[in-house]
């Protein structure tokens, strides 16, 4: 287990993290969401020892992360960082060696990952000569080249074209299949939804929602019901007990049911109006979950 446990962090009077906790099981992918400035990067930097938590710790296999354990983590910082004048192959081998591979293994791993991420032909190029997308691939290769036990990636998909996204997604899924826990932050929620076993939504310094995507949806889906009754008169559902009409347009109605309300009674009422084209609990998309979770106090400016 990779456990983030009760992280607190303030910069001056600005409280950035206020008890962030979540856990990522080996072989699962965790999507870390939150608005800009919510503290995702700070959380990851604390895990990598680049910032010090005021309280709380990050553990891997029950042990608090230290310098030696961190060397087994593949990390991709939010601000991409590579030596601009160093050649791709040498750079990857260098990072592999810093993570403890010996010279031979490092060279082989650098070759492998360069090929794997479509950089085989650019191995001898300097990083500064590459396109941004390719630099991004090098950055990812730098995180993967040391055969890490854990991956922590800050916005790995930003700036990639769809082909690059697919290549990266495939590489990450392969790591997951190999038993590596992967944490990545992203604003591309469709991607998070597609790839991740679990998500966490960070808002105002703490996790406002954590869990498998399906479970979160079901939890949130509880009250919403979409009923499409083309023949119904306007206001057909207004009188039903425990039902609030959220939206209604030409019979396509979104209802919010109070806890304990019998949805079958709603169905019966709908059938009484004539044809029922659609009747289903509506599961919110991750985007809606996110908006819901992050929305509360208005007017907070991202730090």
């Amino acid at each position: 287990m990779l456990e983030f446990d009760g992280l607190h962090k303030s910069y001056g009077g600005n409280r950035v993290l206020d008890g962030v906790s979540f856990a990522v099981a080996p072989g699962t992918m965790f999507g870390f969401c939150g608005s800009n400035g919510a503290g995702k990067t700070t959380t990851m930097r604390i895990a990598m020892g680049l910032a010090r938590a005021d309280a709380g710790e990050v553990r891997w296999q029950g042990r608090p992360l230290d310098q030696a354990l961190r060397r087994r983590i593949g990390y991709m910082p939010e601000e991409r960082g590579l030596y601009p004048k160093m050649r791709v192959g040498e750079q990857l081998a260098y990072f592999a060696r810093l993570h403890g591979l010996d010279a031979g293994a490092a060279t082989r791993a650098a070759e492998h990952w360069a090929d794997r991420l479509g950089l085989g032909a650019r191995r001898r190029s300097r990083v500064e000569e590459l396109s941004l997308g390719n630099q991004q691939r090098v950055q990812l290769a730098a995180a993967l080249v040391s055969r890490p036990e854990v991956l922590i990636l800050d916005e790995p998909f930003s700036g990639l074209d769809p082909v690059g996204v697919d290549a990266l997604a495939e590489a990450l899924l392969e790591q997951v299949r190999g038993g590596v826990p992967v944490v990545f932050s992203s604003h591309q929620l469709d991607l998070v939804e597609r790839l991740c076993d679990a998500v966490g939504i960070l808002a105002r310094g703490s996790m406002v929602a954590v869990g498998p995507v399906a479970e979160l949806r079901r939890r949130e889906a509880g009250g919403l019901l979409r009923v499409d009754v083309p023949d119904a008169p306007p206001g057909w559902a207004a009188g039903l007990p425990g039902v609030r009409v959220v939206a209604e347009r030409a019979g396509d109605t979104l209802l919010e049911l109070a806890p304990g309300t019998d949805d079958q009674a709603v169905l019966a009422a709908a059938l009484r109006t004539g044809r029922v084209a659609h009747f289903a609990r509506r599961e919110p998309s991750l985007v809606e979950l996110f908006r819901e979770a992050v929305a509360e106090p208005a007017g907070e400016v991202a730090a």
Binding site: L50, Q67, R70, I73, G81, L82, P84, F95, L98
Partner: peptide, 12 residues
């Protein structure tokens, strides 16, 4: 180049 973040993740 911010490479220092990657470096400091592996060394002091």
């Amino acid at each position: 180049s911010r490479v220092v973040e990657l470096l400091l993740a592996t060394m002091r």
